[in-house]
Structures are given as structure tokens and as C-alpha cells.
Design a binder for these strands. Structure first.
Length: 936
DNA sequence: CGAATCCGTAACGTC
DNA sequence: GACGTTACGGATTCGA
């Protein structure tokens, strides 16, 4: 008796409940009873009935109570807000209405509506019945097949397999994989953080299935790749949660599909129902036989719950730690200090302690602007206090912010201890805290240890943030700043954090930092070389850096503003010209739009592609194209000027500190893996110098009235270090004899006498020399010189033939890097190279180049840090008024009063050259001027 | 649903 | 080789 086109119509009643409730205005009947959801559902069922006539049908609702998913994952639907009372009150009436409409209704204990629908659809398919599923829930797209169609009544959208592919970008079979990656906010099922529809489709298209994506997680770069790897353990479970069950036992509820035959509307029931709930129009219709008007309801989706941060540290915890972890304290005791008696008690502890861990909480991450909000201290692991001094806001948890001690009083009481050189302190990134105290007129002294620098010296390639360290070294998960203050626009200042919460966070920081010190410092101390780098270089350097940052540098903002205006004019002209040449307006700053104009419209040849496959428009390409076309040249000019304007002439004046009238960079001391410093906000280490236009920016770096700028830079420092390390006779001789090393190299490579070397040969030799420092390949050299790879190879071969010591050194360096896993500088600074023996080809080659470069770059960094120490030590010992104001890798810049110019000019290079004795002399070149440009 | 925020890419400044 | 900053454009998340 089975017909070929029998149809089963299944309605996901639960998915419509909320939608109907939220989408409709707050409808109420005469008695004030909410009826919006009832109205919506009745309307929808009637419309469905007429749109999709079906032999069998059912309206399915979730039952109350737990399902297998709750057992599988306790947090399932955890953050879902409880059902609003107004909606809850409508549930029973809705069931009643559904029955009166003649719809079979299914509410199965312990089984979610989705699973009931899935199981019935599956059974229907087996029995040759086609299924239409009406739902507002995208999750059910996984059920779609040739026999199962989805319809969203709210949007009137139907989905067949092709429709699913179009809408989601993946076929129905991949929907579960897709959802697993994205996660389901509403049900609190996490996916991979930062992965949304686009990324999920990208991965599934590339790798096929979720299993394949997981198997190849290692290949995915960036933060999302990292997030994926951190969620690997979770994903199978997420997938299980999101997979609709097809095999529920419904033998009781639906023994055969005959149980799902529409009973037809029960007029008397309906009339009764409509009259009880006050649906007057429907009541009239039901009594008067007229067909009801159907009206589709608008869609709305509310009820978004926050994604719970899914912290999965399994990987981190499995990783064997380098560190012996001191037994964690039995008991953790954090105290909020709000009375003088408490403060006195802590001051006594500080006085008695050999070493105190200190940390500050502030109003800003900008060290020069940060105002003190609170101080945390710890002298014993597990015990710490937080002294709030500037919290605002209402009383919380019995801790009245108004009851805190005042900042002035606390600082006055602590000043002696804070400024006492003999009272030893440890902290995490104390350079920052030193600024904070300095902002309140206190010179923090006795800075003995810094856990950030300990970590940096031990493993410079890792993350040295406190949270990361706690996890890696102590296997502890700390409260993050974000957890306390939020993020983005809704982030609050620490002074707004309630005192109890502030104490949990701040005291923990001091406690954890002390424990970190106890774990890290023994590792540093145990190794003579690392101990030297830490105690003799990094720790003292941090003190000098803090002073340099505070000194700041004077900028002629007006001069820069004038330059900005000029450049802006020129940019406008260039833009107009470019638009004319292109025959249409376009954004000259958009590589994408340039690509469209150049390569699609003007049909210029594609010289090379970017990493993502788009035609490149970088300088090299434009240079090449400029030979034959006018527009690329324009663009080159535009790019150069735009960079100058946006990064320098516009930006620098904005960075002037309103209090000091000077620019204060921040040096990153634990940023560059090689030991170099980094400079941010602003970066003063990449101020232009190569072009005429660029150098004008340096003219704006000035000294105050009566002072001048003095600059001293190491000459050929990295090549000298290469000579020292390789002990190559030719290189050593060149430097010992004070030769022009690029000329000497040219003479060797081109087999001429030094005097015969042409300017072009010298230029080539210079590029070769730099290439060697960078561990550069023939390929890199070729592209740098604009020659063929064979020609470049020839140069390199000749070079190594003439400087066999250098060749040997490079080989040995690669070898020891492979054997030990790290390379080191002359002073014993270590750089680990995790990829040197593993990883894929390109990564290993990059590690090899880093292995060559790091000892040279790193030794240079060591030397200039030693110079800074020597210079600052001298200036202080002699009570000079000259000040260090900048460091640019191989250059120190000072602000020098005229009266001290002669002595600085003499002593500065001596100090710099005297910090170490290598197999070649160190040379420092000094320049003096009214501005930085002149000082060169 | 539009706005704000985050992220990756391309490009380019320095040593 | 080592960095930091800019602009853009797309993706994601926020927030009403």
C-alpha cells in the first residue's frame, strides 16, 4: 500500500518557541496573559499544513530534564538563560493548541527534539518516505539528503543538499564537522576559538573532513592554528555533542508512522481554546468557517550567551618541564591591606626579608603615564598582600574602597624601603614598575632580580609573559588581566576593580612571581655563562634602559608638522596623477586595488606572486615595471612618502609626552631572540636614514638649548665579530690593518688589488658581506643583487675560497647548532633553535640561517649593552649632565651640554671600544650636531 | 544587524 | 638575519 511520494512533515517545535517568543511583540490577551509564542506557533503550523501537505506529521518538543549530552558534557547549555516566565507560561497552552490543530505531538523523555527528528527522518528514508523538517536551527542541516529537505518557515527558505552546499559552503555530510569547528554559542559547545564559518569552510575544503583537519593541525599557521592544536582533545567530544542521533528508541511513541497521521483540526477544541486565550479573529474564523489569514513572522535571534573560554592546557601540561617545581605551598593566603596596622605589619616583614617580590597595579600600560593604583608584595610563597591606594567605586564584599589607605600615605611610609638599595627586590618586568614609582617621585632601588629576564636568558625564544611562565614553569593557571578587567571597549581600569577581586589577582601576581624566581633563578645561576649574561648584562641593562626611557628625546614637532603638510600636498598630487594615468580613481594604498588596475585592466606583466598567490606589487616589482610604464614609478614615490608621513611625520609629534615635552620610547628587553633590544611606541630604531627625504626626519631629533646631540656607532661591528669568531686570517688581517673591509672583500672576490676595486665591485662586496652575516643563501643574494642564482653562487664560492676560515666557521656553527640545539654569543648568551633538527625543509633552513646570524647579531647586542652600562656608569660616577637618549643596535645617542662635549667626545668611543677585547679592534665613530642627522 | 575589534597580509622603515 | 608600524580588507565578536 505504500505510495512512492508519501511525506513526513516534522516540526522542530522547540526551535520555534524562542524565535516566536522573541520575534513577536509582547502580545497579551485581555487578562494580561502572554500569548505571543502561542500565536506564532499556531500561525506557523497552519501555514506549514497548507504549504506542505503530508500524510504523516509531528510537532516535536524538547522534554524537560537531562539528556545524554548533559552526561557527556556537564557544561552543555550551561549558559543558556532560564526560560523566561512569560514563555514558560505558554508551553502548556501551546501543546494544547497543537493537539487541537490535529498535529501529533512528540515530547520524549530524555531525548532532545533534534534527536527525535533525526531518528524519524532516518526511519522514513529507510521506508521510502520523504521527509520535510521545519526548523529554525541550522544544526539540522546535517540531516539533509535526497530524501530529507529542510525548511525554515520564518525565512521561507528550503534546503536540499545543493542548498546546504550553497548556504554553508559544505555538503550536509560535513555539517557536523563544520559546526564542531565553529562551536555553538547557544548550547555552550565550544569550537575552535577565532574560527567562524569562513575558516571552517576553508579548512574543510582543503582537508576534506574534520579528522583530516585535526590530523594536519600542525600545518596551520598563526593564532587559529595554535587554537586548533589546543582544542584537538576537545573536538571529538564537541562533534559527538553536535551530532544528531538517528537511532533513538521511539518504539513506544511511534511504533509505526500511522501514529503520525494528522487527526485534523478539532473545531470545538479550537473554539474553546481561542476563546479562553482571547484570540478573537481566530475565534470568529473557527466559528465562521473562514480560512485563517496566514502571516509569516519576522525572524529574530536573541539569547546569545557568551562563549565560555575553553581552556585546554592538556598539551602544555603534558610537555615535560625544564624546571623543578618547588612544592606548591600548602595554603595560599592573600591579604588586602587597608589599615595602618596591616601596613606596619607588612613593612616589618619586608625589613626582615632577604628578598621581596613586588608588583604594581596601575591605570595605564604606558609606563610614563601610568598612575599607581595598588602595590602587591610577597616574601613567602603562598602569602601575599595587596595594598590598594587609588581604587574608586562602591563598597564591594565588605571592602569599602573608601577605606583604603591613601596613595600619598602609603608611598610616604614605603619610600625609604622602596629607595633603599640594600632592600632587595624581585619582580616580573620591574622596569615598568620602576617607571610607575618614578611617576610618583620615587626612585625604586635594590632591583635585584627580574623573572622576565631570567626566562629570557634561559630560553629567549619563548614567551616571557607572567601567565605563560606560570603555566610553563609552575604548571599553574593564573588569573589573567582580561578576566579581571575585561577587554576591548568594555575593559575597565584596574582602579575600578572591586578590592576583593583586585586582591585575588594582584596578590597572586606577586606570589607567583616569587615562586617563578625560586624556580628560574637556580637554573640561571647554575650555568656560569647564563649567570653572567643575566647578572652582568641584562639586570643592570634594565636599570639603564629605564633611565634612558625616562630621559626621552626632544623632538621638533613643528618641523615635523611642516614636513607632514608638504608631504601631504605631494601625496595629493601623486594621487591625482596616478588616477589620471589609470583612468579611474583607486586607493593607492591598497595592494589589492593596485593589482586589479595593473594586472587585470592595464595587463602589465606579473613579475612575482605574494605568499597568498596574488600578484605582488612590492618595491622590486614596481622598480621593474617602472622601466616600461609611468604608473609604477608614481606609486613607488607615493609609497615612500606615505610611509614617511603616516609612520613618522604624523605620528612622532603625537607621541610627545605632555608632561615632559619629549618622546619616550619603550625598549623591549625580552623581545628579540638574539639579545637585541626592540623599541616601541614609538619605534625609534627604524627612523629613516637611507633616503634624502627620510633623513629630514632625523633633523627633527634635537637637543635643548645649550646641548647638542652626540652619536657614536660601532663600525662594522658584526663583520668584526665574524672575524673574531671565525678567526679567518684574511678577515682578521683586514680589520687589524684598518682596511676598508668591503673594498678588501671586493679585491678578493674579483681578484684585483684593493686600489683597482670599482665602486660597483665594492657595492657588490658589501651586499655579499651582509648576506653572510644573515646566513643568506645564493637565492637571497641573487635577489638582492638582481643577478642570477648561478652568478650569486659563484660569488659565494669565491668568497669562501678566499676566506676559508669563514667557511669553516659557518659549517661548524651549523654543526654545533644541530648537536646542541642552540648557538651562543661570545658572552655565552644562548639562542635555542627548536627547528634545527626537525621541522620541514624551509623551517630547518631558516633555523640554519638564524644559527649563523645569531652569534654575530647577539654578540653585537651584548657589546652595546655593555657599552650602555659603561657609559651610564661613567656619567653617574662623574655626576655629568649628559644623558643617554637612544640606542639603535650599534649606535648610542646622547644629549650633551656644550660644557661636557669635549670630554664626552673623547671618552664615549673609548668606553665603547673598551668593553671587550676581541681578536680584532673595536672601532666607534662619533658625530656631533644640533640634531641627529647632523651628528652622523 | 551594524559597529567595533581582531587578525593576517603586504609593504617598508631600521640595523 | 633581527625587529615594529602602517594600511587594508576580511572575519569574528560585540552589543543593542
Amino acid at each position: 500500500m505504500s505510495e512512492s511520494q508519501e511525506t513526513l512533515l516534522l516540526v522542530d517545535g522547540s526551535s520555534y518557541l524562542y524565535r516566536a517568543y522573541h520575534a513577536l511583540p509582547d502580545l497579551r490577551n485581555g487578562e494580561g496573559f502572554p500569548t505571543g509564542a502561542i500565536y506564532g506557533i499556531v500561525n506557523m503550523l497552519r501555514k506549514l499544513r497548507s504549504d506542505y501537505p503530508a500524510k504523516y506529521s509531528a510537532c516535536v518538543f524538547d522534554a524537560k530534564g537531562k539528556t545524554f549530552r548533559d552526561d557527556l558534557y556537564p557544561a552543555y547549555k550551561e549558559h543558556r538563560a532560564p526560560m523566561p516566565d512569560d514563555l514558560r507560561a505558554q508551553i502548556e497552552p501551546i501543546h494544547e493548541a497543537v493537539r487541537a490543530l490535529g498535529w501529533p505531538i512528540l515530547v520524549v523523555e530524555g531525548v532532545e527534539a533534534d534527536d527525535v527528528i533525526g531518528t524519524l527522518a532516518e526511519r522514513a528514508t529507510r521506508e521510502g518516505v520523504r521527509t520535510i523538517v521545519s526548523t529554525g536551527d541550522k544544526d539540522l542541516a546535517q540531516l539533509v539528503s535526497d530524501h530529507v529537505t529542510l525548511v525554515n518557515t520564518m525565512t521561507n527558505e528550503t534546503l536540499d543538499p545543493a542548498g546546504v552546499q550553497t548556504k554553508f559552503g559544505v555538503p550536509p555530510e560535513r555539517i557536523v564537522d563544520y559546526l564542531s569547528l565553529i562551536g555553538d554559542t547557544v548550547d555552550n559547545v565550544p569550537g575552535v576559538p577565532k574560527v567562524g564559518p569562513k575558516t571552517a569552510v576553508k579548512w574543510l575544503t582543503e582537508f576534506g573532513t574534520l579528522d583530516n583537519v585535526m590530523a594536519r593541525a600542525a600545518e596551520i599557521k598563526g593564532v587559529v592554528g595554535e587554537n586548533l592544536r589546543n582544542t584537538l582533545e576537545w573536538l571529538p567530544k564537541g562533534r559527538e555533542l553536535l551530532t544528531v542521533k538517528l537511532d533513538c528508541d521511539l518504539s513506544k511513541e511511534v511504533p509505526t508512522f500511522d501514529a503520525l497521521i494528522d487527526g485534523g483540526e478539532d473545531k470545538s477544541e479550537l473554539v474553546d481554546f481561542f476563546s479562553r486565550y482571547g484570540f478573537k479573529t481566530w475565534l470568529r474564523e473557527a466559528s465562521g468557517e473562514a480560512l485563517p489569514d496566514t502571516r509569516s513572522v519576522g525572524s529574530a535571534r536573541k539569547a546569545a550567551t557568551p562563549v565560555k573560554n575553553y581552556a585546554d592546557n592538556a598539551a602544555a601540561q603534558q610537555q615535560a618541564s625544564l624546571f623543578d617545581v618547588e612544592a606548591a605551598p600548602q595554603e595560599v593566603k592573600y591579604e588586602t591591606v587597608t589599615t595602618e596596622a596591616q601596613l606596619e605589619s607588612w613593612m616589618q616583614r619586608l625589613d626582615e626579608a632577604d628578598l621581596v617580590c613586588i608588583d604594581t597595579e596601575t591605570t595605564s600600560i604606558d609606563p610614563m603615564l601610568a598612575q599607581l593604583v595598588g602595590i602587591s608584595l610577597s616574601v613567602t610563597p603562598g602569602q601575599a598582600c595587596y595594598i590598594p591606594v587609588a581604587h574608586r567605586g562602591p563598597d564591594v564584599a565588605g571592602l569599602d574602597a573608601a577605606a583604603q589607605l591613601s596613595r600619598d600615605a602609603v608611598l610616604a611610609r614605603m619610600k625609604t624601603w622602596l629607595e633603599d638599595d640594600a632592600s632587595k627586590k624581585v619582580g616580573q618586568h620591574l622596569k615598568y614598575d620602576a617607571h610607575v614609582f618614578a611617576n610618583h617621585g620615587i626612585a625604586l632601588r635594590g632591583i635585584q632580580h627580574d623573572t622576565m629576564l631570567q626566562s629570557y636568558v634561559l630560553e629567549s625564544h619563548r614567551n616571557h609573559g607572567m601567565d605563560a611562565l606560570a603555566e610553563r614553569v609552575l604548571q599553574l593557571k593564573t588569573i589573567t588581566y582580561e578576566e579581571v578587567c575585561g577587554k576591548g571597549a568594555s575593559q575597565i581600569g584596574f582602579d575600578e576593580v572591586p578590592l576583593d577581586r583586585a586582591t585575588e589577582y594582584a596578590a597572586e601576581d606577586a606570589d607567583i612571581t616569587l615562586r617563578l624566581h625560586r624556580a628560574l633563578f637556580p637554573k640561571v645561576e647554575a650555568d656560569d655563562k647564563l649567570d653572567y649574561v643575566y647578572e652582568q648584562i641584562e639586570m643592570p641593562t634594565s636599570i639603564v634602559l629605564q633611565k634612558m626611557e625616562r630621559n626621552g628625546v626632544l623632538i621638533d614637532g613643528e618641523r615635523l608638522a611642516k614636513q607632514s603638510t608638504e608631504i601631504g600636498q605631494r601625496l595629493l598630487e601623486l594621487e591625482t596623477e596616478a588616477h589620471a594615468l589609470a583612468g579611474q580613481p583607486f586607493n593607492l594604498s591598497s595592494p589589492k586595488q593596485i593589482g586589479e588596475i595593473f594586472f587585470n585592466q592595464m595587463k602589465l606583466p606579473v613579475i612575482k606572486k605574494t605568499a597568498s598567490g596574488a600578484p605582488s606589487t612590492d618595491e622590486e616589482v614596481l622598480q621593474k615595471l617602472a622601466e616600461d610604464y609611468p604608473l609604477p614609478k608614481l606609486l613607488l614615490d607615493y609609497r615612500g612618502l606615505a610611509k614617511l608621513k603616516s609612520t613618522y611625520t604624523d605620528k612622532l609629534p603625537k607621541m610627545v609626552n605632555p608632561n615632559t615635552g619629549r618622546v619616550h620610547t619603550t625598549y623591549g628587553q625580552a623581545t628579540a631572540v638574539t639579545g637585541r633590544l626592540a623599541s616601541t611606541d614609538p619605534n625609534l630604531q627604524n627612523i629613516p636614514v637611507r633616503t634624502e627625504e627620510g633623513r629630514r626626519i632625523r633633523e627633527a631629533f634635537i637637543a635643548p638649548e645649550g646641548s647638542v646631540i652626540v652619536s657614536a656607532d660601532y663600525s662594522q661591528i658584526e663583520l668584526r665579530i665574524m672575524a673574531h669568531l671565525s678567526q679567518d686570517e684574511g678577515l682578521l688581517r683586514a680589520f687589524q690593518e684598518g682596511q676598508d673591509v668591503h673594498r678588501a672583500t671586493a679585491a678578493e672576490v674579483f681578484n684585483v688589488t684593493p686600489l683597482e676595486v670599482t665602486a660597483d665591485q665594492r657595492r657588490v662586496a658589501k651586499v655579499i658581506n651582509f648576506g653572510l652575516i644573515y646566513g643568506m643563501s645564493a637565492f637571497g643574494l641573487a635577489s638582492n643583487l638582481g643577478i642570477g642564482r648561478d652568478a650569486a653562487k659563484l660569488y659565494i664560492d669565491r668568497y669562501f675560497a678566499r676566506y676559508p676560515g669563514a667557511a669553516r666557521y659557518m659549517d661548524e656553527t651549523r654543526q654545533t647548532a644541530r648537536e646542541r640545539g642552540y648557538v651562543e654569543t661570545v658572552f655565552g648568551r644562548r639562542l635555542w633553535l627548536p627547528d634545527i633538527n626537525g621541522g620541514n625543509g624551509p623551517r630547518r633552513q631558516a633555523a640554519e640561517r638564524a644559527a649563523i646570524n645569531a652569534p654575530m647579531q647577539g654578540t653585537a647586542a651584548d657589546l652595546i649593552k655593555l657599552s650602555m652600562l659603561a657609559v651610564q656608569g661613567w656619567l653617574e660616577a662623574e655626576a655629568m649632565r649628559s644623558r643617554l637618549v637612544m640606542q639603535v643596535h650599534d649606535e648610542l645617542v646622547l644629549e650633551v651640554p656644550q660644557a661636557e662635549l669635549a670630554v664626552v667626545r673623547e671618552r664615549l668611543p673609548e668606553l665603547m671600544c673598551g668593553v671587550a677585547t676581541l681578536r680584532v679592534p673595536l672601532v666607534a665613530e662619533v658625530g656631533v650636531g644640533a640634531n641627529w642627522e647632523e651628528a652622523h
